[in-house]
Amino acid sequence: MPTPRLYKTITFELKAHHRLISNRLTQEENERIYQKCMGKHGHGHNYKICVTFCLSPEDFSNGRLTLFTSQVHSLLIEPFHLKSLNVEFAAMGVENPVTTGEQIVSIFSEKLRLAGLSEFVSRLEVQETRKNSFITTPKKPIA
């Protein structure tokens, strides 16, 4: 009989600066593709980082959820809050810190996976604006 699982989504707010610009593209290509999103001095968002935990019912009362929530905050929020994503991603060694929503969710997912949290997080969503969001699954793929 399968173990019952509960899904709980916790939303964190991350206020950060970014500028869409790729070091693999020419100036003209960057301007054509990213338009105002590559404005010289960048811009920022109140990102919402929605983490869906997949846990056993006991984990909601034994402190495990609290521990995981704290870990996610340390991994995804504290290093970037009120900072520039371009600068911080570059400092992490990201070769092309273009800072699209797709890249942010992929990097954050990898951070959760490397911290051993992928087993407990079934869904990770980065909401850039009210109209745009990006989702991935930190779990290892089946195939």
Partner: peptide, 13 residues
């Protein structure tokens, strides 16, 4: 649940 491969992302508008 359905899992995405590492390189795949869902974009919503």
């Amino acid at each position: 649940g359905f899992l995405l491969s590492a390189e795949m992302v869902l974009l919503s508008r």
